[in-house]
Design a protein around this nucleic acid. Structure first.
Length: 803
RNA sequence: GCCGGUGUGUCGGAACUGGAAGACGAGACAGACUCAAAAUCUGUUAUCCGCAAGGGUGUGUGGGUUCGAGUCCCACCACCGGCACCA
C-alpha cells in the first residue's frame, strides 16, 4: 500500500471530475431537482481565509449527498464583486477597479478549486460583468416603472475636511477614517426603493418558509410592525397640526408635552416666530454629529430644548402643552414627532424628570414619582375623563374610536423598517440607468441601450460637491433624452452592492441568456432555492432585500414563486486561535492554501466540519487540524485490514446500521461534527475488530465521501470496488438493526444514580424492580426507608423515591 | 442602548422530546517501538475524599418548578452578531 499523499490524489480527482463534468447541472424533468445555494463571496484582495470554506463545505456535503440520493442538484458559485474595498484599493494604487476585481476573482477561484467543491463552474457569474449588470439595471427599471423607485432628501455622512461623502463604515467615532476630520450629516437627494410597501408580506410570508427561528424573529423585529394611532395635535393659534404616531393612545390624557425631531420641517417653517431659533439650530448642529445608535441610547443623559413661541393643544384634554426638540426622536421613524407621556414611558419620564415637566398618572398601579409605570396588563385608567376605570385594552379601543369619530386621528400600522436608500456617490457600482431631461423629467434608458457601462475616469474618489466621480465626466453625463431627443444628463449615482446580490440566485439558473435575465423554463424548473445557507450578519439586509426583490418580480409576473428561498440556515464564524475575529490587523488570519498544502483539502474540509457546532462560532486550532489528518490516515490504512467478501461483518452490523442512520440524519441537520464523530468511532471499531469486509468499507467510504471526497474516491479505486464512488448511491439502513436488545438500565434512588443493571430492553417494570432491589448499593440507600413512588421510563430509567 | 444569539473538563465540543453530564477530537501524563527524536500503537485523564468498594461536588451567577434540570421558569452577569452607505 502506498503512502497517503493528499496533494497528488486531490489534484488527480479534481481533474477527473472536471473532465467528466459530473457537477454540471442540466434541466432534467425525470429527476427531482435540488437547488443548494451558498452566499457568493466578495473577492477581496486578501484572498480566501478559513472562514469561507465552512459554509461551502457544509453545502457541498448536502449537495453531494443529494446527488447520491438521486436528485438533480444545482450548486453554483459566483462573485459579489462591486464594493468599497476594491474601490479604495483602486484609488490608493491608481489602478482600475475592474483590473483589481479580475485579479481577485482569479485568486479566489483557484483557491476554491483546490478545496474540491462540487460547484457547477459553468454557471459562474460576477455582478460586475456587463452582461450581468445589464439585467441588474433592467430589473431596477422595473421598480422605477412600477413606482417603487423614487427620489427623496436623505442625509449622507459628510467629511467636512475631505469634502466627500462617506460610508458608515468609514466613519469612526464621528470622524473620517482617512483624514480624521469631523463628519456631519448632509442632506442629499437620493434614489429610494419602497421596501416598506412589502413590509406586511415580508413578515407574514415567513410562515410559508423553513427558516431557522432566529432568522425569522430577527427579520420580524427589524420590520417592527406595530399597531397604533396617528393623532393630530393642533399647533396653538396656527393652521398647522403636529401629527404623532403612538402605540398607546389610551395614555393621551397623560401627555403633558410634545417632542419633535431636530429635523422636523415645523422648525424651519416657524423660524421667525421661534424665540430661541438660534439655540435650536446650534443644538441641531450637535445632533447631526451623532449616530442614530447614540441618539436613541436609552441609558444616556437626556438632552433637549424647549421651542419657545410654539405650543400645541392636547386634543383630549384641550390643554396647551409645550413643544420640545430632542435627539431621541428620529425623523425616520413614525412622523418625527411624539406625544410625551412621562408617567408611562421610561424615556419620557427621564426627560420630564430632568427638565421639570409635569408627570401625570393616567394608569393606576405604579408609583410615577419614582419611575414610569409601563404595565399594560393589569393597569386601570385614571385622570382620563371618560376612560377612567377602564382596562388599558378597553381604553385603547374607546379612545381610538373617539379620536376617529372626531376626526382627530386614525388607526395606523407603523413599521420600524424604512425605505431603502439605493443611491451611492461612488464609482464602483452599477450606474443607475436613468436620464434626466428638463422637458420629460426622469426617463429610463431603453432596454436596447443597456447596460449603461462605467466610463473610465482619472479619479475614483467622490467629488467635493458630494456627487459621484461619474459627475465629472462630461462626455458620459451629457446625453440625449431617449423620449424627446433633446440634451439631457445621466444620473451619476450608482447602486449599492446589494443590488447585484438581490437576484443572483435567478441568474445562476440561466447565466448565459442574452435575451432575458433568465428563461421562464429555467425559473419554473429550478426555483425555489431549496436550501440557502449564509451568515447571520446578512439576515436583515441582504436576506430581506432579496426577498423583497423576488416578491416584486412575482407580482409583475417575472418569477413563479412568491418566496425565493425555501429553507435558510446560518453558520457560525471561524475565529482566530486567540478566540478573536480573524483580521489582518489582529494578525490571526489562517490561509486555507497553507492547510491544503500541508495537510490536504480533505483534512481542511474534515476539520472545518468537525471544529464544532456548525451554527456557532469556533476558534481555529492547528492541533485540531492534525487530529483530522490523523483520522484520515487511519481511514487510508483501512486498506491494510480489508478482507475479501461482499458480506457484511455480522459482529459490527448493528454499528454500521446505526452509523448510516446517524450520519444521514446529521448531514441533513447541519450536525456535521457529530456525524464525523460517528464515523471516527466506527473506524475505531473496525480496528478493534481487526478487519473490514469490502462491503463494509464501501458503506463507510460513501458515508465519508461528502466530507472527504478525494481520499474516499482514491481508496475505492485502490481496493478495486466497482466503478467510481461518485457513481454510487447512498446506503440504506434497517431500522430494526439499529435497536439494541440488551441495555444498561440506570437505577436511581431519589433521583441519584446508585446502580446500573444489564437487562432486556423489553423488561417490565416489575422485572427491573426485582433486579434493582437485589443490588447491594441500591439496598444500602433504601435500608429501612419505605418506597413511596416508582418512576419508570421504558428503556431510559428506573427511579425509586424513598422516605 | 435596542433586536437576535451564546455560556458545559486544560481546550474544541457531545447529551434524543426533562431521564447515566463530558461521546468524538485535541492536549497532558505513563508505557511500547527507537541509539534518540518524530511518527505510530496501548493505557490513564472533570474535581475532591478513599487502598478499594464507593461517596461528595460539578454545565456563567442567584433563585424556582420537578421523583429527576445543561435542558423548563424568573432575575442577573459576561461575551458574540446586527443596527439600515462594510460585505
Amino acid at each position: 500500500m502506498r503512502e497517503y499523499r493528499p496533494n497528488e490524489i486531490e489534484k488527480k480527482w479534481q481533474e477527473i471530475w472536471d473532465e467528466k463534468e459530473i457537477y454540471k447541472a442540466e434541466i432534467d424533468q425525470s429527476k427531482p431537482k435540488f437547488y443548494a445555494l451558498v452566499e457568493f463571496p466578495y473577492p477581496s484582495a486578501e484572498g480566501l481565509h478559513v472562514g469561507h470554506p465552512r459554509p461551502y463545505t457544509a453545502m457541498d456535503i448536502v449537495a453531494r449527498k443529494k446527488r447520491y440520493q438521486g436528485y438533480n442538484v444545482l450548486f453554483p458559485m459566483g462573485w459579489d464583486a462591486f464594493g468599497l474595498p476594491t474601490e479604495n484599493f483602486a484609488i490608493k494604487n491608481k489602478i482600475h477597479p475592474a483590473i483589481v476585481t479580475k485579479r481577485n476573482i482569479q485568486r479566489f477561484k483557484s483557491q476554491l478549486k483546490s478545496i474540491g467543491f462540487s460547484f457547477d463552474w459553468s454557471r459562474e457569474i460576477s455582478t460586475t460583468d456587463p452582461e450581468y449588470m445589464k439585467w441588474t439595471q433592467w430589473l431596477f427599471l422595473k421598480f422605477y416603472e412600477h413606482g417603487l423607485a423614487y427620489k427623496k432628501e436623505m442625509p449622507i455622512n459628510w467629511c467636512t475636511s475631505c469634502k466627500i461623502g462617506l460610508a458608515n463604515e468609514e466613519v469612526v467615532n464621528n470622524a473620517c477614517e482617512r483624514c480624521g476630520g469631523e463628519v456631519v450629516q448632509k442632506v442629499k437627494n437620493q434614489w429610494m426603493l419602497k421596501i416598506t410597501e412589502y413590509a406586511d408580506r415580508l413578515i407574514d410570508d415567513l410562515d410559508t418558509v423553513d427558516f431557522i427561528d432566529r432568522v425569522k424573529l430577527q427579520q420580524t423585529n427589524w420590520i417592527g410592525r406595530s399597531n397604533g394611532m396617528e393623532i393630530d395635535f393642533q399647533v396653538a393659534g396656527k393652521e398647522d397640526k403636529l401629527r404623532v404616531f403612538t402605540t398607546r393612545p389610551d395614555t393621551i390624557f397623560g401627555s403633558t408635552y410634545m417632542v419633535i425631531a431636530v429635523e422636523h420641517p415645523l422648525i424651519e417653517k416657524y423660524k421667525d416666530e421661534i424665540e430661541n431659533f438660534h439655540e435650536i439650530v446650534e443644538y441641531r448642529g450637535e445632533v447631526s454629529k451623532k449616530s442614530e445608535i447614540e441618539r436613541t441610547d436609552l441609558s444616556k443623559e437626556k438632552t433637549g430644548i424647549e421651542i419657545k413661541g410654539l405650543t400645541a393643544i392636547n386634543p383630549a384634554t384641550g390643554k396647551e402643552i409645550p413643544i420640545w426638540v430632542s435627539d431621541y426622536v428620529l425623523m425616520s421613524y413614525g412622523t418625527g414627532a411624539i406625544m410625551a407621556v412621562p408617567g408611562h414611558d421610561e424615556r419620557d419620564w427621564e426627560f420630564a424628570d430632568k427638565f421639570g415637566l409635569p408627570i401625570v398618572e393616567v394608569i393606576q398601579g405604579g408609583d410615577i414619582r419614582k419611575e414610569a409605570y409601563t404595565d399594560t396588563e393589569d393597569g386601570i385608567l385614571v385622570n382620563s375623563d371618560f376612560l377612567n376605570g377602564l382596562s388599558v385594552k378597553d381604553a385603547q379601543e374607546k379612545i381610538s374610536d373617539w379620536l376617529e369619530e372626531k376626526g382627530l386621528g386614525q388607526r395606523k400600522v407603523n413599521y420600524k423598517l424604512r425605505d431603502w436608500v439605493f443611491s451611492r456617490q461612488r464609482y464602483w457600482g452599477e450606474p443607475i440607468p436613468l436620464v434626466h431631461c428638463d422637458e420629460c423629467g426622469w426617463v429610463p434608458v431603453p432596454e436596447e441601450d443597456l447596460p449603461v457601462l462605467l466610463p473610465d475616469v482619472e479619479n475614483y474618489e467622490p467629488t467635493d460637491t458630494g456627487e459621484s466621480p461619474l459627475a465629472t465626466i462630461d462626455e458620459w453625463v451629457n446625453t440625449t433624452c431617449p423620449t424627446c431627443g433633446k440634451p439631457a444628463h445621466r444620473e451619476t449615482d450608482t447602486m449599492p452592492n446589494w443590488a447585484g446580490s438581490s437576484w443572483y440566485f435567478l441568474r445562476y439558473l440561466d447565466p448565459q441568456n442574452d435575451k432575458e435575465f433568465a428563461s421562464r423554463e429555467a425559473i419554473d424548473y429550478w426555483m425555489n432555492v431549496d436550501w440557502y445557507n449564509g451568515g447571520m450578519e446578512h439576515t436583515t439586509l441582504h436576506l430581506l432585500y432579496s426577498r423583497f426583490w423576488h416578491k416584486f418580480f412575482y407580482d409583475i409576473g417575472l418569477v413563479s414563486t412568491p418566496e425565493p428561498y425555501q429553507k435558510r440556515t446560518s453558520h457560525g464564524m471561524i475565529l482566530g486561535d486567540n478566540n478573536e475575529k480573524m483580521s489582518k490587523s489582529r494578525g490571526n488570519v489562517v490561509n486555507p492554501d497553507d492547510i491544503v498544502r500541508d495537510y490536504g483539502a480533505d483534512t481542511l474540509r474534515t476539520y472545518e466540519m468537525f471544529i464544532g457546532d456548525f451554527e456557532k462560532s469556533a476558534p481555529w486550532s492547528e492541533n485540531g487540524v492534525k487530529g483530522c489528518r490523523r483520522f484520515l490516515e487511519r481511514v487510508w490504512k483501512l486498506q491494510e485490514i480489508v478482507v475479501e467478501g461482499s458480506d457484511y461483518t455480522k459482529e459490527l452490523e448493528s454499528s454500521i446500521h446505526k452509523a448510516i442512520k446517524k450520519v444521514s440524519k446529521d448531514f441533513d441537520t447541519l450536525k456535521f461534527n457529530t456525524g464525523i464523530a460517528t464515523l471516527m468511532s466506527l473506524s475505531n471499531e473496525f480496528y478493534d475488530y481487526g478487519s473490514i469486509t469490502k462491503k463494509d468499507l464501501e458503506t463507510f467510504l460513501i458515508l465519508l465521501n461528502p466530507v472527504a471526497p478525494h481520499i474516499t474516491e482514491e481508496i475505492w479505486q485502490q481496493v478495486g470496488l466497482e466503478g467510481y464512488l461518485h457513481e454510487s448511491t447512498w446506503p440504506d439502513y434497517d431500522e430494526s438493526k439499529t435497536k439494541d436488545e440488551v441495555i444498561q438500565m440506570p437505577i436511581q434512588v431519589n433521583g441519584k444514580l446508585r446502580a446500573t443493571i444489564e437487562i432486556s430492553v423489553d423488561a417490565s417494570q416489575e422485572e427491573i424492580k426485582d433486579a434493582a432491589l437485589k443490588d447491594e448499593n441500591v439496598q444500602k440507600f433504601i435500608q429501612d426507608k419505605s418506597i413511596v413512588k416508582e418512576i419508570f421510563v421504558k428503556g431510559k430509567i428506573f427511579n425509586l423515591v424513598v422516605k
